[in-house]
Nucleic acid binder design. Structure first.
Length: 422
RNA sequence: GGAGAGGUGUCCGAGCUGGCUGAAGGAACUCGCCUGGAAAGCGAGUGUAGGCAACCGUCUACCGAGGGUUCGAAUCCCUCCCUCUCCGCCA
């Protein structure tokens, strides 16, 4: 979330940035309540000071064995007043906080202004989409033909938008996880963590899923547990309510996890295949860095994700999301979109974002500067490195052969143990 | 799941028969003295959040979280969370 004082002192700027995101939230109510809050706070603090002073006097009088009846009567009245003020104050603080929690991050100045994904700007393309001498099949056709994807039985066992991976398909999924983890750990210097797949409400609030996007997550009935929509949530919350040492920054983590998305609004889109599932695997990159470094770190993080695509030989393009398409918590996001022959288009396979101090403030992740001992919020970043299921689909479609078999990309062969899936 | 113990500042650790404890003592760190240099020693300092003033400063809150009792709570009561030990169960 944004800093309370910052919002108070920059209301117009915040409203302007909301408009750029296509959000018509008015902050009039916020302004009113914040004024009242400060008024009451000043008053109640004066009363509390009085209470503290008199309380000391009572202690002293009691020690001397003197009468305190009158002064205690005064204090009773004072305490009653304080209680009333505190109640109103709490109400205001809750209401103000509720507003702050649903204000999205302010887009970075380099982010193009726009309303939909049509307005995203392409940064560059890498690789050439392959020219097929035959009509390429979609990954779901290939998968069923090779008996490596089973949609029907997954629907029976669980429901729509779940898939069984079988045989070389299951092995390919596992190979991709290992390949990506190895690359990021060994070459890019990330430290591997394996997180819980369930988090509590405080963690989901820390990264920005709650309170606004509760319906996108699966929640365990009767428990304060949510299935993680991405490893970003547990990994970013690793250091929630902590003060890190400057010498420990930057911290790079890479984590494999399953991801769970309820995505209530997605019915009807990508109903075939494994592009949009309720459960998928992902290798996620998460960084905690000093504020002055975060934009350079975003470029590096994105490059780390790109290298996966390059090593796999998958054509992709990099786009910068416009203000209207930017995620709630993000200040700037690059999407990497992989070429899918069956769609004859590029589809998102990685999303790399700088959240600046937006998540750090919600989650209370700070660091102490060596120079002057001051404490400030870190900047957090994350990006997919990559989404495994979509990578699998991309490999199947881009590396398919006329006979329906699939050539295994060179870098995966040590993990797969075979050259062709047939 | 059952029984017991406990959660205090960067860390360790007192206080817990309510007022003189934002919090003893120690460690660590910063600055100064000492020294050829270092260690030891000596002296001073070092939490977070918020309000007012915005130069110095000042006030409020915070002893796992929330609520209650009280004129007043780290200290008493209740609920919850977490950690440890033993038992049960389980991969």
């Amino acid at each position: 979330m944004l800093d309370l004082r910052f919002v108070r002192e920059n209301i117009e700027l915040v409203e302007e940035s909301l408009r750029k995101r296509g959000n018509e939230l008015s902050l009039d109510k916020f302004r009113e309540m914040e004024e009242e809050r400060r008024r009451i706070l000043t008053d109640v603090e004066k009363l509390k000071h009085r209470r503290n002073v008199v309380s000391d006097q009572i202690g002293e009088l009691k020690r001397k064995g003197e009468d305190t009846g009158e002064i205690i009567a005064e204090m009773k009245e004072l305490s009653g007043k304080i209680k009333e003020y505190d109640e109103r104050l709490k109400e205001l603080e809750n209401n103000i906080n509720d507003i702050l929690l649903v204000i999205p991050n302010i887009p970075h100045e380099s982010v193009p202004v726009g309303s939909t994904d049509q307005d995203n700007e392409e940064v560059f393309r890498w690789g050439e989409p392959r020219n097929f001498s035959f009509t390429p099949k979609a990954h779901w056709e290939l998968g069923e033909g090779l008996d490596i994807l089973d949609f029907g039985r997954a629907a029976k066992v669980t429901g729509a938008r779940f898939t069984f991976l079988k045989n070389a398909g299951a092995r390919l999924e596992r190979s991709l996880v290992n390949f990506m983890l190895d690359l990021h750990v060994e070459k890019h210097g990330y430290r591997e963590v394996f997180p819980p797949f369930l988090v509590n409400a405080a963690s989901a609030t820390g990264t920005g899923q709650l309170p606004k996007f509760a319906e996108d997550m699966f929640k365990l009935e009767g428990l304060d547990y949510y299935l993680i929509p991405t490893a970003e949530v547990p990994v970013t919350n690793l250091y929630r309510e902590e003060i890190l040492a400057e010498k420990d920054l930057p911290i790079y983590h890479v984590a494999y996890s399953a991801c769970f998305r309820a995505e209530a609004g997605s019915h009807g889109r990508d109903t075939r295949g494994i592009i949009r599932q309720h459960q998928f695997n992902k290798v996620e990159l998460v960084k905690f860095v000093k504020p002055e470094d975060s934009y350079a770190e975003l470029e590096k993080l994105t490059a780390d994700a790109e290298e996966v695509l390059q090593l796999l030989g998958l054509p992709y393009r990099k786009v910068v999301l416009c203000t209207g398409d930017l995620g709630f918590s993000s200040a700037k996001t690059y999407d990497l979109e992989v070429w899918l022959p069956a769609y004859n288009d590029y589809r998102e396979i990685s999303s790399c974002s700088n959240f600046e101090d937006f998540q750090a403030r919600r989650a209370g992740i700070k660091y102490r500067r060596e120079e002057d001992g001051r404490v400030e919020f870190v900047h957090t970043l994350n990006g997919s490195g990559l989404a495994i299921g979509r990578t699998l689909a991309a490999i199947m479609e881009n590396y398919q052969n006329e006979d329906g078999s699939i050539t295994v990309p060179e870098v995966l062969r040590p993990y797969m143990g075979i050259d062709v899936i047939r």
